[in-house]
């Protein structure tokens, strides 16, 4: 409920056509990783705080807020088998109706899985809270 904190690196984002699906996410992660590799920039270190309210992304070094993604805007999360240190989620843009896939590089495969399972648990708690609120 208080939020779990993970230190990762931001790989980037791409637009996607569907809110969920393994093939969609896998292709999106491939595109993001290819773009990230092609760019000479160092990946930004970010801190993810995962709670039933959503995911708060801050810059690890400056602590500046990058984005506060409401749980109601997140449709999907995954740790892909081919890019196994990558955690990704799909969310509706805060500005319009478009769907975005955001990907993050974790230090280990286990961390990518832990972030994904934590977000999944946040989904479940958010559903419980939503049902209580009805």
């Amino acid at each position: 409920l208080e939020g779990m904190v993970f230190n990762v690196k931001y790989l980037g984002m791409t637009l996607v056509g569907q809110p969920k699906g393994e093939d969609m996410a896998s292709a999106a992660i491939r595109r993001i990783v290819a773009m990230a590799r092609a760019s000479a920039k160092k990946f930004r270190k970010v801190t993810l705080t995962v709670s039933p309210k959503g995911i708060i992304i801050t810059d690890t070094e400056t602590t500046d807020l990058i984005e506060n993604v409401s749980i109601y805007r997140i449709s999907y999360c995954t740790a892909d088998k081919t890019q196994d240190k990558v955690f990704a989620y799909v969310s509706q843009s805060q500005f319009n109706e478009t769907l975005e896939c955001h990907a993050f590089l974790c230090q280990k495969k286990k961390i990518a899985q832990a972030v994904t399972l934590t977000v999944a648990q946040a989904f479940k708690v958010a559903l419980d809270l939503w049902e209580i609120a009805q």
């Binding site: 896998s26 749980i71 999907y76 995954t78 495969k109 989904f123 559903l127």
Partner: peptide, 18 residues
Amino acid sequence: NTNTIHFDNPVYQKTTED
């Protein structure tokens, strides 16, 4: 060997006003 793990969000696009 690992499989992809992935989860759909059951509260996606729900709001507390529903």
